[in-house]
Design a protein around this nucleic acid. Sequence first.
DNA 1: ACTCTGTGTCTAGACGTG
DNA 2: TGACACAGAGT
DNA 3: CACGTCC
Length: 465
Amino acid sequence: MGIKGLTKLIADEAPEAIKEHKVEHYNGRTVAVDASMAIYQFLIAIRHGSGGAAASQLTNEAGEVTSHIQGLFNRTIRMLASGIKPVFVFDGKPPTLKGGELDKRREKREKAESELKKAQEEANVEEQDRQSKRLVRAGKKESADCKKLLELMGVPWLEAPCEAEAQCAALAKIGKVYAVATEDTDTLTFATPRLLRNMTSAGDNPIKEIDYKKMLEGLGLTHAQFIDLCILMGCDYTSNIRGIGPKSALTLIKKYGDIEHVLENISKGKYQVPPEWLPRIKVRKPSSLPPSAPPSVSPVEEGDKAMPGDENACKTAEVDSKAGMEGEKEEGIKAAAIVAREVAPDEPAKSVEGEVMEMPAYVMARALFVQPEIHDPAELNFKWVEPNEAGLEAFLIDSLGFNPDRVKSGIAKLKASRGAMQQKRLDSFFKPSGSSSTSSTTLKRKEAPAAAKGKGKAKFGGKKK
DNA sequence: ACTCTGTGTCTAGACGTG
DNA sequence: TGACACAGAGT
DNA sequence: CACGTCC
């Protein structure tokens, strides 16, 4: 999803942060690409005739989908032909979300499934098409296909421990890549210095580049405030406050500095803060403590449980795994907003014996943005090597049934772009002006393991402590 | 009168030929 | 998923 | 440029 309405807000409030460049501007530069998102888009976009029978994807004779391979093959060649050196970053395990968000996601999915079934019974082709698109996902199989393809093409890739966007941002921050190409705006929330949009689609139409520093200046925010702004506006990790959109969020953050102080100052009558945004205490049942609220805290005033859609499913998975989930008692705490801020963002705080303070949802979201799980970008090095011609032909032609002429012409372009790449190095040796690697000066070249070959996947879930 | 939010809608890649 | 237009609530 | 095809 990204951050709701962020693009428009930037265009309105910090237009100087957006510049347009032609593709040539990126000649010789390294760009991290969110592979999972690209795969998803290929799967949705590359299909035949939405007219006649239900639209279907491209497949080989065995019926395996090849749309994503077709798309990635072409796009990668296109980038290389423009002199852009892509690194593809795949998603790892999905992040830990608040229960409420997971439920919403599941509900949407189930709804799409039932709508699809209904459309099939009614033979409503249009509706079938629409709903089946909503069910498309970039799964493990598709990712594996694409990794194999990239290796054969001699293009580096890497699998992030968790979210690709976070890993891309980390690479860009230390200059390992010049920019990140994605349509997903929460890449900015990870402080990507340069975000490229519109990298897709044909030749000469300009690429929009968003400059992170200029964006902060234009909005008049610090990085920490920008993160809070994004959470208020609505991000993937938590729900947001009804009635607060982009404009109000920006105004409030500028006025009060952070979410804690926004919550203290907004009228509780006007806005309904989601229950999971309030700090809550979980009390362990078996303990000898009285089941009521602890003495040192006072319950929050009105409107805690008055929420219409209040499932009590809004629990933090991390907390659940530790404390048993039976019979927890939830109480809002007035003063605890401040306490929660000082708590280590990764760990539930123990306030009193037998009690675990559950972090407010926005604090968890903040932690996911501030300290995402990533591979140390300094340890990663990328190489663009000669394509494996025989391997590509075997994979694409023999195994997937691609048109031999198209494959061969693709390979020819690959080789040509490699030649141009080498030539550019020589040029920049003599004329070091507009060259790419700003990084090589500051980074000691490590002899680290060449670009992650699918192994060494960091464990998720295991919270480092 | 104006501003903002929340709702719905539509759409989503790249190539080669004519 | 995102971008856009429009309606409706709120100021 | 629009349109059909890619598998």
